[in-house]
Design a protein around this nucleic acid. Structure first.
Length: 415
RNA sequence: CGGGGAGUGGCGCAGUCCGGUAGCGCACUCGGUUUGGGACCGAGGGGUCGCAGGUUCAAAUCCUGUCUCCCCGACCA
C-alpha cells in the first residue's frame, strides 16, 4: 500500500482522555479511533492487525475441525429466558433495546443460547456429533467502567467456539485438543513464552475452567505461576484444596499480574438441558448433548501486544500480526522510479509493504515508520541507488546495513 | 455504583480565582527557501469556550441542572 493513499495520519501528541499506553499509541499511529469510552473503530492499519490476529486463530481452529459461522448480534428474549439468562440480575452487562413493534431485544454478550437453539436444527443423531462451530463476532457488554483502551471495551471482538459432543469422554478429548490449539495461537502471536494455562473457577459440570493468562503489569488478574510446570492458578481459586488437587505447594508459586487472553469452559448439559438439545444414540435412546465453550479476544490481544512490545518510539509488532512486513522509505522524488520498482518486486514476492511515497521529509518518514511498528524498514535514496544497494533496518535494531536487493529478498523470504 | 479530576478550532494546551464577547503549539491552505531523524520565513483559514437555564449593562469566567470523558474502588456472568 502506498502511504499517499492512506487516509489516516499520525499525531505527535497523545489524546488527553487516554492513559493506557496501547490506546495512546494506537490512536497516535492512526490504527484506531475512539468513538466513546470502551468503543473503538478500527482504521486501515488497525484493521489489518486485527485481521491478522484473527487469521492466526482461524487457522488453528480450522485445524482441529472448527466450522466458521457468523451468528447474529440481535437476540430475542425467549431464547435467553429458556436458560434464565435474560435477567439483568444474572447477566448485568446486557444492552437491551426494542423492535419498532415494541418487542424486546438484546445485543449478544455471548452466544451459548442462540447457537444451542440453532444446532437443534442440525443435531438429531449420534452420527451428527461431535461438531465445533465458531465465529468472530463483536460482543456487547455494558460494563460499568471500561478501561485500559482495547483491553476492556463495551464492544469487542471475540472468537467463540462451542463444542457439541456425545458425552464427557468425547468432550474431554476435544478439550485437550483445543488447549493445544490455544497454545499454538499464542506461540504464533509471540506471546507463548509468557502465557500460562491457568486454573480458574468451573461450574456444575467441571471443577475448573481454564484461562490463558499472559503476564503483564497492566493485567487485571492476579495469578500464581508455577514456572516448572508452566501453569498457573487464578487467585479466585487459590486455595489449599486446589493446591492439593494439583499436587503443588505455595512456595513453588510466584504471584504475577496477567491479562486473560483466552478462556475454555466445560458447559456440560447446562444449555442443552435449558434449550432441549438432544440426539438419539446407537440404542435409539435420547441423550443430552455435552457442550463446551472456548473464547479468545482478538481485540484485547491487539491491545495487549501493542502494550507489551512498544518502546519509546512507538509500536513494535511481531511479524505475524504487523499491518505490513516492510516499510519502504523513499527519500527524494528523483528515486521514485527505483522505489516503485522495489515496491513491485516486494509485492510480487507476497511481502506486504507500506511504501512511504509521500512528499515529506526523511525525519518524518522515519518517525512514522517507528511509530507504526513495521518490522522491516528499507530506505531507497540517491545514495543507495548510486551504490546499487538498499538500506535495511529491523524495527528492533539500532543499526542499519546496506544490502543488495537479492540479499534483502533472501532475508525477507526466510524470516 | 461510591470517591476524585476534567470538558476551550482536528489534536495538545493557556485563559476561569480578580466577568469586559478568545489565545498559543501542532495540524491545515498559499508563496518562497529547504530535504537522512518529525525544517524555516512570510501570508492565511478555522472555535464563541460540552449542553440547558439563571444572575448581570456585559458570562469561557459567577450560580443551578444535565451530559460526556479520565483515574481509584466495587463489578467482570
Amino acid at each position: 500500500m502506498r502511504l499517499s493513499e492512506l487516509f489516516t495520519k499520525t499525531s505527535k501528541t497523545a489524546p488527553a482522555d487516554e492513559v493506557a499506553k496501547n490506546a495512546q499509541l494506537l490512536i497516535r499511529a492512526g490504527f484506531i479511533y475512539k468513538e466513546m469510552a470502551g468503543v473503538y473503530a478500527y482504521l486501515p492499519l488497525g484493521k489489518r492487525v486485527l485481521d491478522n490476529i484473527m487469521q492466526v486463530i482461524r487457522e488453528e481452529m480450522n485445524a482441529i475441525g472448527g466450522n466458521e459461522i457468523s451468528l447474529t448480534a440481535l437476540q430475542q428474549k425467549d431464547t435467553w429466558e429458556a436458560s434464565g439468562r435474560w435477567s439483568d440480575e444474572i447477566i448485568d452487562v446486557w444492552f437491551k433495546t426494542k423492535l419498532a413493534s415494541g418487542t424486546e431485544l438484546g445485543l449478544a454478550p455471548t452466544h451459548e443460547e442462540p447457537l444451542t437453539k440453532l444446532m437443534k436444527t442440525y443435531i438429531a443423531s449420534y452420527k451428527d456429533l461431535p461438531v465445533y462451530p465458531y465465529q468472530f463476532q463483536i460482543k456487547f457488554r455494558n460494563e460499568l467502567r471500561s478501561k485500559s483502551g482495547l483491553m476492556r471495551g463495551r464492544e469487542f471482538w471475540m472468537k467463540d467456539l462451542y463444542s457439541f459432543s456425545r458425552d464427557r469422554a468425547e468432550h474431554d478429548e476435544f478439550y485437550d485438543k483445543i488447549t493445544e490449539a490455544y497454545h499454538a495461537v499464542y506461540d504464533r502471536l509471540g506471546l507463548g513464552e509468557i502465557t500460562y494455562k491457568t486454573f480458574a473457577s468451573g461450574g456444575s459440570f467441571s471443577k475448573y475452567s481454564h484461562e490463558f493468562q499472559t503476564l503483564s503489569d497492566v493485567g487485571e488478574d492476579t495469578i500464581y505461576v508455577h514456572e516448572a510446570k508452566k501453569l498457573a492458578i487464578n487467585e479466585e481459586v487459590y486455595t489449599d484444596e486446589v493446591l492439593s488437587d494439583l499436587g503443588i505447594s505455595r512456595d513453588e508459586l510466584v504471584e504475577k499480574k496477567a491479562v486473560e487472553v483466552g478462556n475454555i469452559f466445560t458447559l456440560g448439559t447446562k444449555f442443552s438441558d435449558a434449550l432441549d438439545l438432544v440426539y438419539t444414540d446407537e440404542k435409539g435412546e435420547q441423550q443430552k448433548v455435552f457442550m463446551g465453550s472456548y473464547g479468545i479476544g482478538p481485540s484485547r490481544i491487539m491491545g495487549l501486544i501493542a502494550e507489551l512490545f512498544a518502546d519509546d518510539k512507538g509500536l513494535v509488532w511481531p511479524e505475524a500480526v504487523a499491518p505490513a512486513r516492510v516499510y519502504l522509505v523513499q527519500i527524494g522524488d528523483d528515486v521514485a522510479e527505483e522505489a516503485q520498482k522495489l515496491y513491485e518486486q516486494l509485492v510480487s514476492k507476497g511481502i506486504e509493504t507500506l511504501w512511504d511515497d509521500r512528499d515529506a521529509r526523511p525525519g518524518e518518514k522515519f518517525a512514522d515508520a517507528d511509530l507504526y511498528g513495521i518490522p522491516h524498514r528499507i530506505v531507497v535514496s540517491a545514495k543507495t541507488v548510486a551504490d546499487q544497494k538498499v538500506e535495511y533496518k529491523a524495527r528492533s535494531a539500532d543499526e542499519t546495513e546496506l544490502l543488495t536487493v537479492d540479499e534483502l529478498l533472501a532475508r525477507l523470504v526466510v524470516s
